[in-house]
Amino acid sequence: MIRLAAEGLSFAIARRRIVWNVAFEAGGGEFIALIGPNGAGKSTLLTLLAGLAPPTVGRVTVDGTPLAALKAAELARRRAYLPQNPRCDWPIPVERLVALGLTPSLPSFGDFDAEDRRRIDAAIAACDLEAHRAQAATTLSGGELARAMLARALVGDPHLLIVDEPLAGLDPRHAIDTVRRLRALAVEEGRLVIAAMHDLNLALRHATRVWAVSSGNLVADGSPREVVDAPLLQSLFDVPARVHADADGEGARVEFG
């Protein structure tokens, strides 16, 4: 199982601190929800963990090896990353979009082999895209595109999945499906999933661990039950909050205002 760790991780632009002194250890089997207000530095932290931005101070290690020492293609085979509101610039069919996730392991020329096709089919099925298989990606609705992008991220069988706002634009059914899938990827398949989320209820219910980020600092790190309480939420979001435990004891409901 993959292990991800950070020490003193910081990122600054022109003396403005965006992420500051983040440290943690995480591994496969965890589904980590990253919560915090707008502008807290969540997206930047995720790009740092994905190895797509060089830290100003500190480092990130994967299985003990610093990210900077890994080749881009090698890292790409083990780690999948999705930014916020991912777009596709050409009207390619959905199944081609999903297939792009296999890029790190494909040769320059030549097409897919049977194993690749199997993986693509599996990813499409897993994200409920069979009906849109041949449809042009630019004609998909926001939610359908989000699922297609997730399928793209999953098709390469990544050990580490980093997603920025995976539930944006999804209707309740698909949002619940997606977050359940993310949990299953972690808990049942042993991957490490880190997702920035605005939907606190779903986060509380399905994540195994919560990171709370405020002004670039990691202010809380632990299981949802331990970490998420009204005082924390109030200091994070600057709004009165109440946390009601669910009847079945699994999650909690958050109420603002």
């Binding site: 797509l52 080749k71 881009a72 293609a73 090698e74 790409a76």
Partner: peptide, 17 residues
């Protein structure tokens, strides 16, 4: 291959190696 990956934008393309 690189051009295909770029269809997803520069950040995703870089994440694909």
């Amino acid at each position: 291959r690189a051009l295909d990956a770029l269809a997803l934008g520069e950040l995703q393309a870089r994440s694909l190696g």
